[in-house]
Design a protein around this nucleic acid. Structure first.
Lengths: 154, 154
DNA sequence: TACATTTGTGTCGTGCGCGATACAAATAAT
DNA sequence: ATTATTTGTATCGCGCACGACACAAATGTA
């Protein structure tokens, strides 16, 4: 019975993605710790370093996160003096997020992060096979999706 | 300056994994809701359906989760009458997790989940390009890792 | 046997992540 | 001009995730 096979942990597509996602966030941690930020906060900073003065709404859209996740997160970042939160003049509903000098300063430290992460992934913390397996699983899955898509169109 | 490029959200490898992971958990939600469970709880059930009478430690290893995540989770599942928690006789430190009849019963409902998830992914909730992009990003990344690995060996 | 170390499980605190809900500002409709 | 709807942000509650830490049972050592 093929249903039995589908319910095995090893044949789950989402599980490796879920696992690797957490694994990667953990790999970032030591470097983000020195900057005093978390991974989601790092993502917000990436957005702001690319384009300062962004509304909360724009951040939620870029990061695919809900307001009720981002709002408290931004408040913590404001408390840490990384950003400023100001109501927009043109639209009183919007809150404009801007980097403080401290937030801008962090970019220099952060510029080392991608390379360092690569190094740590090459050594001990994350093993390559896990990532490879994720890739294989995704490939199989996309194949299934493609076939199904074709059937649907017919 | 290539560091500038590396710090763009679009060139981040972990971000699509992180996003797609949340996206997939959300896709599961309506089906798991009808079963009254969450995604991590579903993962625990997958383990138990494959092999009943498993210690907490074995679950943490299979799911790559910490005890301090799994312990409260199992307590909630016990409260929901899905599992039983009993101290092992052979080793008083170990806690053996077993399915209740209700927990076993859920397997029948769950057997529909993988197919239904595939259906929902084909329709509206998740768009294929997101997944495809994740695959592409992973491929590039693995390429970089491979090259670096070779350099290291030399 | 006495003591040190390891192992398995658990609590606590903090930060997400999100559904449900609230609320005021902006916009649309009548 | 009033009223209804939409939009942008935020609070609340719950369930993870995990680092730090606690503690008892099991194991190793002198």
């Amino acid at each position: 019975m093929y249903k039995e096979e589908q319910l095995k942990l090893s044949s789950q597509v989402c599980f490796p993605i879920y696992s690797v996602s957490r694994l990667l966030t953990k790999a970032y941690k030591p470097y983000l710790d020195t900057m005093g930020i978390t991974y989601p906060q790092y993502l917000v900073l990436l957005v702001l370093w690319e384009n300062d003065a962004v509304t909360v709404n724009e951040i939620t859209k870029k990061l695919y996160l809900n307001t009720n996740t981002v709002s408290p997160l931004l408040k913590r970042m404001e408390k840490a003096h990384l950003i400023e939160r100001n109501r927009s003049i043109s639209d009183e509903r919007s809150v404009v997020i801007q980097l403080t000098s401290q937030g801008k300063e962090l970019k220099k430290v952060a510029s080392q992060v991608p390379d360092k992460l690569l190094q740590v992934l090459l050594t001990t913390n994350v093993n390559l096979p896990d990532i490879m397996n994720l890739k294989d699983t995704l490939e199989e899955w996309i194949e299934v999706l493609r076939e199904q898509k074709i059937k649907e169109i017919k």
